[in-house]
Simulated scan of single mutants.
Amino acid sequence: MGRMSGVLWVLLALVVGGMLYIRLAPSDPARWHRAPEASVDKTFQSGVTRRVAAGPDGLARLDAIIRATPRTRMLAGTLGAGMVTYVTRSRVMGFPDYTTVQQVGDALEIYARSRFGRSDLGVNGARVEGWLAALEAG
């Protein structure tokens, strides 16, 4: 009984440690703040790229929409530089997803991807499509 209890405590500690790592792992701007290079729309297992016409003020308008998204903050970049990377964390586990948006002329190039796991279950694509719908409606 004592050995089984010890194993359970170790497993619990590993699970809690993993959850804390996901929540508290630093986000290195040098790794995540990179130009999207989204010349075509593409969907892959852990994210999406999109290129949309948005006018010369597209980044500023989309930035306001993104900043209003719960659990989302700016990681790196500026509107003045024409490229910004955001981190959005999932509600329960706090998984970080990174979205980089760059203004290229009158178009926006967007690259949204997850940090952990092989698949984001379509979360990044749905989030980006919601942002773009709000941009188009606004």
Rank of each mutant, 00 (worst) to 15 (best):
Y21K: 10
L20D: 01
V101L: 05
A53K: 08
V16R: 09
S90P: 01
L8R: 11
L135E: 11
T69C: 08
E37F: 10
S27P: 00
T72N: 10
G130A: 11
A107Q: 13
R23D: 09
H33V: 06
Q45F: 01
G80R: 05
E109M: 08
R118M: 10
Y98D: 00
R115T: 03
D106N: 13
G18C: 14
G105P: 07
A76F: 03
E37G: 10
V128D: 03
R61E: 09
L108N: 01
M4D: 04
R113N: 11
P29C: 12
D57C: 09
L59M: 05
P36N: 03
G82H: 02
E136D: 15
G55K: 07
A81L: 02
V104P: 01
M4I: 10
I22S: 03
P70I: 06
R3V: 13
R51L: 06
R51Y: 01
R67W: 00
F44R: 05
L79T: 10
S5V: 14
V128G: 00
A64E: 14
G117P: 03
Y98M: 10
G18S: 12
E109P: 04
L135K: 12
R34K: 15
D97C: 07
D57G: 14
I66P: 06
L24P: 05
W32Q: 08
D57R: 14
S27M: 13
M93Q: 04
Q45P: 06
Y111Q: 03
R115F: 04
L8E: 07
Y98Q: 09
A112Y: 06
M19C: 14
T85Q: 01
L24M: 11
R3F: 12
A38Y: 02
A137G: 11
V84S: 00
I65M: 09
V87A: 00
W9Q: 10
R113S: 10
R50G: 06
S39R: 13
V104H: 05
L24Y: 08
S27E: 11
R50H: 06
Y21V: 14
A134R: 15
L79G: 06
G80Q: 04
F116D: 00
D106E: 09
M74A: 12
V87D: 06
D97T: 03
M1Y: 08
A133W: 02
D63T: 14
V92I: 15
D41V: 07
M19Y: 12
P56I: 10
V48M: 02
S5R: 04
I110G: 08
P56V: 13
I66L: 14
G82W: 05
I65W: 09
V128L: 09
N124Q: 08
R34C: 08
R73D: 02
